[in-house]
Design a protein around this nucleic acid. Structure first.
Length: 260
DNA sequence: ATGCCGAGACATTCTCGA
């Protein structure tokens, strides 16, 4: 199984790179964030042409998440929205079952903007709601294997930040955010990249500004969280840095997990 | 080499992103 998560920062702007990626890597599942399109404008036809089906949770110019799967696998039992999120239907959470046996969720955690802001408080509530939802899914009778992946907007540890001192007083590295993200993991998931790369720096996002990419100034905020049975079967977790280069890149790159 | 913000919209400036 090959599963990918990618914050594309507008699916319309990124569609050529997304189709390039699908052709090059042929993932079984591609989880998208920040699609930034209206539901009517979602490029189902272009994805079908490439051999994929998609389920989207779209809210216009902001946010937007989607699940794309190889057409042969199919998508079933699609649900949109995260129970307990403060702003309902902000299009930050979508779930589906792939190939009849794998439950996946694509998530775009709120940014939080500034510490001590209402948006920061909402971010913590969102992460707490994620932990509850993961607990529900894991507790269900005959619970299928689960992957929750996306833009967590939290760097789990200082090794995931190019300069931890630069983020003191900012979002993405504060203790409450890290504790809340750890709560999601503690509900029964494993950080796939960390499982195979215990000590490596593995940034997935670089600011468009001030040449941060070519200066190596990034964050690891895009995660693939998988149930232990999947984590034990991982053969590769890779960061496709080449997709931060070239024509019209997203500021995030695809994160690819392969398991047997 | 990877290259110095990008995307969307009630657009010509503003909001948001991390």
């Amino acid at each position: 199984m090959r599963l990918v998560t990618w914050n594309v920062n507008s699916l319309r702007a990124r569609l050529p790179r997304v189709l390039e990626f699908l052709g090059e890597h042929r993932p079984d599942v591609l989880l998208l964030q920040e699609t930034k399109c209206e539901a009517e404008a979602f490029p189902h036809a272009e994805l079908a042409e490439a051999g994929y089906v998609a389920a989207d949770h779209s809210a216009g110019r902001w946010a937007g998440v989607a699940i794309v799967a190889r057409a042969e696998l199919g998508l079933a039992d699609v649900t949109s929205g995260l129970p307990g999120e403060v702003v309902e239907d902000e299009a930050r959470w979508i779930e589906a079952t792939v190939g009849g046996e794998l439950r996946v969720a694509s998530v775009y955690v709120p940014n939080g903007r500034e510490l001590d802001s209402e948006w920061y408080a909402q971010k913590l509530v969102f992460l707490e709601a994620m932990a509850r939802r993961v607990g529900e899914l894991r507790a269900a009778a005959e619970a299928p294997e689960l992957v929750v992946a996306g833009d967590m907007n939290v760097a789990p540890a200082d090794v995931d930040v190019y300069d931890p001192a630069a983020f003191v007083g900012s979002t993405h590295t504060s203790a409450p955010e890290r504790d809340a993200l750890q709560g999601v993991v503690a509900a029964g998931l494993v950080d796939a990249f960390r499982r195979l790369h215990p000590d490596d720096v593995g940034f997935t996002w670089w600011d468009y500004r001030q040449g941060h990419f070519h200066r190596g100034l990034g964050l690891r905020i895009d995660l693939i969280l998988a149930t232990p049975a999947i984590a034990d079967r991982l053969t590769r977790v890779g960061i496709e840095r080449d997709y931060r280069k070239g024509s019209k890149p997203s500021d995030h790159v695809p994160l690819v997990a392969d398991w047997t």
